[in-house]
Amino acid sequence: MSAPYDLLARLVGLWSDGLGWVGERLGIEMLDYVFMHHAFLVGALIAVMAPLIGTFLVHRQLALIGDALAHTAFAGVAVGLFVNSLLGTGISPYVTAIVVAVIAALAIELISETTDAYNDVSMAIVLSTGFALGAVLISLNTGGLAVGINQYLFGNLSTVSRENAVLLVVLFAVVALVVTVTYKQLLYVTFDETAARVAGVNVPWYNRLMTTLTALVVVGAMQIMGVILVAAMLVVPVAAAAQLARGFREALLASVVLAQIAVLAGITLSFHYNTTAGGTIVLVAVAVYIASVLAGKAQSRRAGEEPLPTPED
């Protein structure tokens, strides 16, 4: 393997050693397992990436795009497994999932740009196509492959390998870097597309960029969350943060904090009660969302008591 990979693998190893040491010192049993170290690392990265991208999506009313791309990522996994069994190659299904999901992401944008279809129509078409393609390819495969598919559908903590952790670190770096550089443009497009165009922002280009980043996040999160529930991480913490925050930066920060709570608590509960990780994380996230709604209501009731000052108008 190449030098950058070795470096990242060593960093993941250091993280693992660190958590193992902490677990030993504090007597935390679940930290005895290396796969849990990887799961916590991957989970923490997901809980930054997903709400980060999700905040832009939700406030453009594109919450469903994550769901559509997750289902095409499933087709990508199927393509990987199919090619491997056909040619005897050992390509990671996550790599083919990234490729297929990014192609699907651009297809969604192309469909909305070139036809008059509503955005949700193009998403529904891509979602169904992705899942159908995945299902057909898997049924073409004989024998034990269909058994392994569950981990992609529902996610699995114990299969998070060092390679997967490294892949996640790379995806995280790409997503974080791109959002940092294009934050202003993405915010402008999200808030007001026409004003953004007048201000010289190339709106179609940023739409494609946003959708492509979503594809990367979805594939990254699929490992733990599973295809079916991955979109929840893009939406639920963001919806919760919107109940509490006044500003956009504040909302971004709050959504990341709430997602971290959901992921860390979810993984821990999942380990102790031997429940599926994706489902557990989503249930915790929904509980956080409900708490946020209640807190937001209480907050606005307090704020409602002091009337908004009006200037001369």
């Binding site: 406030h59 009313q61 202003k184 443009q185 915010l187 402008y188 999200t190 808030f191 007001d192 026409t194 004003a195 007048v198 201000a199 922002v201 943060a241 919107a242 925050a245 006044r246 500003g247 956009f248 930066r249 504040e250 909302a251």
Partner: peptide
């Protein structure tokens, strides 16, 4: 550029007045 208010119906996005005005500097 100032158009009809975009926040009127569909937008419930959390964003402060200061953040919106700063967009003019983007």
């Amino acid at each position: 550029y100032v158009a009809q208010d975009v926040t009127e119906d569909e937008k419930r996005m959390p964003i402060t007045v200061a953040e919106v005005v700063l967009m003019g500097r983007f």
